[in-house]
Structures are given as C-alpha cells and as structure tokens.
Amino acid sequence: MAEVTLRVFRGDRDGGKAVDYQVPLTEGMVVLDAIHSIQAHQAPDLAVRWNCKAAKCGSCSAEVNGRPSLMCKTRMDALPHDQPITVYPMKSFPVIKDLATDVSWNYRVNKKIPPFQPRPGVEWKMDQRDVDRVQEFRKCIECFLCQDVCHVLRDHDKKQQFGGPRFFVRSAGLEMHPLDGASRTRMLKEELGIGFCNITKCCTEVCPEEIHITDNAIIPLKERVVDEFYDPVAMIVRKIFGAK
C-alpha cells in the first residue's frame, strides 16, 4: 500500500516541533482520516478537534500545506505526495496542544452582538427571496478559518478592537433578517471595529461554506455604518423621522 508522510505540529503553549508520520493511503482518504490513523497506531495522545467528519460542524480546522482548511474535506489525493503534507494548528489562536487551539475569544465576541429582536407587532410571514439572502449567512459552521486567515487578526492581532469576518457574517444574518428590529451599526463600528477590514477577501477564499463574506456581509454592513455615522443627509433625515 502506498504511504505518504504527514508532518504534524506537536507541542503546546510553550512551543513544539513538527513530527513526521508515515501513513498508509486509502481510497478517497481525507487529511482527518490520516490524523485518526496516526492517533490509532502511532500517537494516541495527538490532540485534534473533530465531530461530524462531514463539513457540517466546523471543528477540524487546521492549516494543511499552509492553507486554512477543514481536514475532513481536504482530500489526500488532491495534495502532492512527493513532499511531506504539513498539518499545523490555526495560527491566529493560541495553541493548546498539537492541532487544538484556544478559540474561546470567538465566543466572547459573539456575546457582544445583540440577539434577534422581532419588530413589535410583526406578522410571522416572510418571502423566500428575503429568507434566501439571510440563509447564506446562517450557513456558517463556525470553523473560524475566516478568523484564522484575516490579516487584521493573524498579523496584527487586533482581537481587542476587531470582531473578525465570522462575526460580521453573524451580524449580517441578524441585521438583514426580514423581521429584525434591532440596530447593530454602532456595535459594528465601535465594538467589532468593522473599519479595520480593508476588504482583501481572504476570508471569502477560505470559507468552506462558500459564503460571500466580503461582498454580501462585510461591504453592506460597512455601507450601513457609513450611512448611519457619516452621511449628512441621512443624519438629517434621522433627526426628523427618528432612528430605525
């Protein structure tokens, strides 16, 4: 049986090193299968998160040959075998051990976003076309690969000032919900720091759910922020007719 070399990061908060493992290839194998094979036969304490193995839960995020990926949907036969396949933890988050990182910051950001709030006296009817637009954002499986690749977080570590693409997607899902009545523009500007995003679209490229994060979520939200805080006509209109 053909074998392939996986070069996996082994270590913890204090540092670590890459370790090579030889893994037998099977038909249709994905990187997560290879990691499981290493656990079962070579390194039972190799730490990795996973749940569904079907790209539905977003747990097995890692950097495979340098690309932020879900290991469960990265096929081994799509990667070159003449050199080791590298598997590293997500760089934007502190390593706990091996491939598992501390993603708790994301849960703290999520708490800042005001939840869905139906408009008073709303009738619970919606058009499928309006729902479609928002369902795109609600497809998000919280793999945090967009957070991992975003240079504002990855290279500049602006976790105190910036929420990251995942939470712009979440905010967009609430803001554009056909029956929602809350406003999140001030929060987006001041707490999630949407202005830091300079629309390089790296997040969109790595999204395993193919959500058009930049075009459909971030840019429209940026426009809302601009309308609310920087548009003089809108400011006058709001003064006369009141806020949303």
Binding site: P115, F116, P118, W124, K125, M126, D127, Q128, V131, V134, Q135, R138, L174, H177, D180
Partner: peptide
C-alpha cells in the same frame, strides 16, 4: 417550532410566506 422562529430561526417558506 413557532418559538424557534420567534427566536430568530429562518425556515424555508411556502408561497404565502409560512414555514415550508
């Protein structure tokens, strides 16, 4: 189910806007 909808869940819709 209605409660889920009131908490923000977005189900697919029928032609007259109800839950499909």
């Amino acid at each position: 189910v209605r409660e889920l909808e009131q908490w923000g869940a977005l189900f697919d819709r029928t032609e007259n806007g109800e839950i499909l």
